[in-house]
Design a protein around this nucleic acid. Structure first.
Lengths: 192, 192
DNA sequence: TCGATTGTCTAGCGGTGCTAGGATCGAATC
DNA sequence: GATTCGATCCTAGCACCGCTAGACAATCGA
């Protein structure tokens, strides 16, 4: 094990520490509290060290978003594979999605609300993001209905989930009726 | 016409100028560019003047949001009243909503993405916001379907529209297929 | 005309993201 | 083992942010 290898490993460790700390801080106190100074202090390095790993704060948000996308994809697949039949799968998918958004608000923001400098719905879209969409597509494609393109249906279904997630969390919708809303729009949107 | 009345009128004028300028600047260069300094410079007063009208930047965003809500409500009502039959009304509503979001991205952000310090879905919710929701409810209530609470249906429909609007504008959804998405989810969600 | 009040401005506080340039440390060479 | 030298890191500082205290000028009422 060469010295160089050890250094690379330590550098990678520190990068993970930065991302994990940013995420933790964001979940604890919101993204506004994630300043480069506070972040640097928490990882016990000076500010400029952050910039040797990331181009700026935006890229750090992007890294948290990618981490979140991978987790969300895994959660969605776990939930849908444990469900029997299309209806149960779609319901499980919707619940898991909203649950993820509620349990990890900062990560969800990093993925879909904030600017993490990531490309979406494009060729150069990072793999975790594509995969998260694929996870949605896997369960939603089968309930798109005849003559409806699975990707288009998935986009619409996803947008609805996203709308529910964000409006609920931002206090734009009365809290509490989430379950009813989910049932209603699963029932209507999906062809079962 | 007393001197005091003239002063009050001038003060109200200036307040409108602040809101209009903030909105204009936000639409031109994004809300990040709306700093208190730039805003003050544009209205040709010093920074502290802003604070004699509003508690802070947040309240200015809130004022823009209220203005936007009133406009959106008017646009929705104009569109739906010009349409014949429930189906045409709902489609017109959806198109108008998304069109408003696309044409006035900064205002839309002020209403639903940013923190304007406004209360939503509560007793003390400002009138324009309640009225915008009412405008949605008027056309959507009639297609909620039997046994489904109109308000609940409106919330779900609205959330879907909101999801489409935000994901599209943030580049999270491929642009261009908006019309197809609208047709699909109007067809599915509404009971026609 | 003079004091009080109102209105506005200048200047500055503590914070932000980000970076230039110097200090330090450790690895490789002689 | 001493010395060089490059990589690594930190101190200090930039321009900007939202917001406010306190000085100043204009206006009003007596």
């Amino acid at each position: 094990m060469s010295v160089q290898e050890r250094k690379q490993r330590e550098r990678a460790d520190r990068e993970r520490l930065i991302v994990a700390t940013a995420r933790e801080l964001a979940e604890q106190q919101g993204w506004d509290a994630v300043t480069t100074r506070r972040l640097a202090e928490r990882i016990e390095y000076s500010q400029p060290v952050l910039y040797s790993h990331f181009r700026g704060k935006r890229e750090i948000i992007g890294a948290v978003a990618l981490e979140g996308a991978a987790e969300m994809a895994a959660a969605l697949r776990a939930a849908t594979s444990a469900a029997d039949g299309p209806r149960a799968r779609v319901t499980a998918l919707a619940r898991t999605y909203l649950d993820f958004a509620e349990r990890n608000p900062a990560v969800y923001d990093a993925m879909f609300q904030l600017d993490g400098g990531l490309a979406f719905a494009r060729e150069e879209t990072p793999e975790p993001l594509k995969d998260a969409f694929a996870a949605l597509l896997e369960s939603l494609g089968e309930v798109a209905g005849d003559g409806v393109h699975p990707a288009l249906f998935t986009e619409v279904f996803w947008a609805s989930l996203h709308g529910l997630a964000t409006l609920t969390r931002a206090g734009r919708l009365p809290p509490g009726d989430t379950e009813q809303r989910v049932e209603l729009f699963v029932e209507r949107l999906a062809v079962l």
